[in-house]
Amino acid sequence: MTSQIPVKAQNAPTDRAAEVLGGPVSDTSLRRYLEGIPGVDAVGLEARAASLGTRSIKTTSKARALDTIISLIDLTTLEGADTPGKVRSLVAKALTPDAADPTCPRVAAVCVYGDMVASAVDALGASHGLDTAPGGINVAAVATAFPSGRASRSVKLADTAEAVAAGADEIDMVIDRGAFLSGRYGEVFDEIVAVKEACRRPDGRYAHLKVILETGELNTYDNVRRASWLSILAGGDFIKTSTGKVAPAATLPVTLSMLEVVRDWYRLTGERIGVKPAGGIRTSKDAIKYLVTVAETTGVEWLQPHLFRFGASSLLNDVLLQRQKLSTGHYSAPDYVTID
């Protein structure tokens, strides 16, 4: 796209969206805009993703890739059975992924339910804050009646505000897939704007907002693309594939299609939006394919924690095993990494 719309950082999302849409935000104007976006050819998209997946990453590149993956992980626990103890354990792992190797980088964040935020913040102590503390780690909280999103707007906003108040640096919200699939784009838009506002802290700064599309329920790549644009228009800092509670969760083609939107948004506005594939990425080999896809779609500058994350739990240990293999020259075993 040749014409650039200048970013006006001070603009509220609604004003900026109106600028992009060329008129006030409404179901009709959003529909006209989103449905005017070029379609996705599923076969072409999947073929491109498969081709990116054949990149062969060896030796020094692989070592860098593995460390990069760790630094981009949102180490996650989202179980009904979570307890403060479990979260403390998760934080310990996040801070010291490989007890045997002090050069091992830390993950970007821990991701927990809202009621666990305080425990996570507490466990992190001085290491809380990716941007503020040296070697620090963020706390991300899922909110807005995660994972279904089926609650009233006020409940969702309260859910968000409480997590932010408890110290969450990042909020992972879910969009209203029901509203989206029935074409009530305005409603989805308004809700994201409202949640973003609920991310506002007393000092005027905002917790980072990741918008979960739940691509497994959107069903088509065209929907994923439209939902991505919609979320970005409404002010999301990140677009995220999935809750991890619906299959299929993150896939390489879905992530590629979202990266393409982010790339196009950057061309249009000069603003960089983050992408977070979540759920289902369990091996280093898979994760490296995502890195390649990011590098060759948006460029390597996206391989930073404020622009790309892996939502994952078991991925970390596989990366650690591979890392040990690279440094020792022989294959490692699960007993040489900690379970959490």
Binding site: K58, S61, R64, P105, L303
Partner: peptide, 18 residues
Amino acid sequence: MTLTTPSALDFLDYAPAP
């Protein structure tokens, strides 16, 4: 924003994979 890894930015210079 500090990167814990030295050089994610030259990631595209894949090492030779003959």
